[in-house]
Nucleic acid binder design. Structure first.
Lengths: 252, 252
DNA sequence: CTTGACTCTCACGTAACGGGAGGCTGGATG
DNA sequence: CATCCAGCCTCCCGTTACGTGAGAGTCAAG
């Protein structure tokens, strides 16, 4: 299954010209061309385009994106993790701007003058464009790279194997709890739910109880997730969902 | 009091070149020049620059911004109001992107394939740049302008006078309630707090209870706001603060 | 009175496309 | 089977919002 340029443009919400441009500069070249020279985009190309769109939205330059995506040290999961952090930071900043607007509004209705510093407080040290640059510095290519790269940017294959093992161990114990006839609300099962949450936090992003229950709902709402758990053990999706909710209620 | 170009650049978090550029295209020309030709920016220039920065951050083109800012139908308050709406919308979108990233992450750890539609769902109809364009359309220059302009973009002087009157009436009644020895937690005073909140919602932006209590805190934390109320009546800042909090607790 | 930081005005460079021109292609249709 | 017409191709020039010096004047401090 492959898609022509127009279809991809429509899907991704960009123009055909943009895709041509990405091809020209080598950022995203379709993995195939038809006999007549038509561009044909495969699934993998779409995934790359998805990453490109996210990084673009976060203010990265195309050349930087190329560098990031072609860096063999970070895989798809690492990108998602990084995007998660960047998005969180960005939202935080916009919320600050929102507060600043509300402040300015109140000041206006009361005829209060803002100081010059206050006017631009929120833009302060980082102007919005090169906050990508700031991220660059944090993750970029210099000294302290080694440490932060491990934490935020990319896991080694060994790490990945370790995570897989941890995760399988966890789902085995969850399965056993079900066999033992324990209730989702029981203490040991809630502890397993909590462990699940901590695993996500440790390996991917800070998983709040709110996010966690959101995931739990998704496990039931989306067939593919449901089936993932159902294949491990029938009833597990519902069981895990209930356990996560129970855990969130009692802990949060 | 006026500032040289370098100082302004530092304050606003832009380069000197950017200010030169804004001057060239007539978007922001300093209200004065020194004898030797140095640019001197006044307070009013800073306010305009502040507006420019916000609209830029929201994705508007410089020419559009010039049009918006020079539109005599909207004043500073209208801009703030509009920016509030746009920022809220933008944050909402980024939060959707965040959810999408979390989704993609979960999908990955379970080895689930995303459909092409899902990959770009969040970019869907509006690509992030021309969502300013979308806003343009909503507020821009065509048919249904008259209505929406009234609601979101600019108030007439008559409206403004009406608001001032409403507001003064309200603060008079608040003052009377204090004279009558009513407690901030009493029903009639909480009703006045609620009225305050509704006024903000009606005239400026949707003021949730959370935002409202935030404003209340600010009335105490920021001297200028405190003094605004203290000048109406000593103790009013604290009184209003308590009333808003009491109202939020019981209503929300 | 000199130095270093700041400012001025050209003027060319760049990133990320937009928007045609001119010409193939390929599935549907009379 | 010819004929559309939408979709695709490759140039190639235009645009926006600045970046980046070059060369020269300005100003407060020592």
């Amino acid at each position: 299954m492959s898609y022509p340029v127009g279809k991809v443009a429509e899907l991704a919400g960009v123009t055909v010209r943009t895709l041509h441009h990405y091809d020209e500069i080598g950022l995203l070249s379709p993995s195939e061309r038809s006999a007549s020279g038509y561009r044909r985009y495969e699934e993998a190309d779409l995934e790359r385009l998805q990453q490109i769109r996210y990084y673009r939205e976060l203010g990265f330059a195309l050349e930087e994106i190329a560098g990031i995506l072609d860096d063999p040290r970070s895989d798809a999961t690492a990108h998602l993790r990084r995007q998660h952090e960047l998005l969180t930071a960005r939202i935080k900043q916009l919320e600050q701007m929102l507060t600043a607007v509300e402040f300015a509004m109140e000041a206006r209705t009361m005829g209060i003058q803002l100081t010059p510093e206050e006017r631009f407080e929120v833009f302060g040290d980082f102007n919005p464009d090169d906050y990508a640059e700031e991220a660059e510095q944090r993750w970029g290519g210099t000294d302290s790279y080694a440490e932060s790269a491990r934490r935020t940017s990319g896991y080694t294959k060994a790490d990945w194997v370790r995570f897989k093992a941890q995760n399988e161990d966890w789902s085995r114990r969850l399965s056993e709890a079900m066999d033992a006839g324990l209730a989702p609300e029981s203490a040991p099962v809630m502890e397993l739910a909590e462990e699940h949450r901590r695993q996500i936090s440790e390996w991917f992003y800070e998983c709040t109880y709110e996010i966690h229950t959101g995931l739990a709902d998704m496990y039931l709402a989306d067939d593919r997730f449901t089936q993932h758990y159902e294949r491990i053990k029938p009833g597990m999706a519902q069981f895990l969902h209930d356990a996560i909710h129970a855990n969130a209620v009692t802990r949060a």
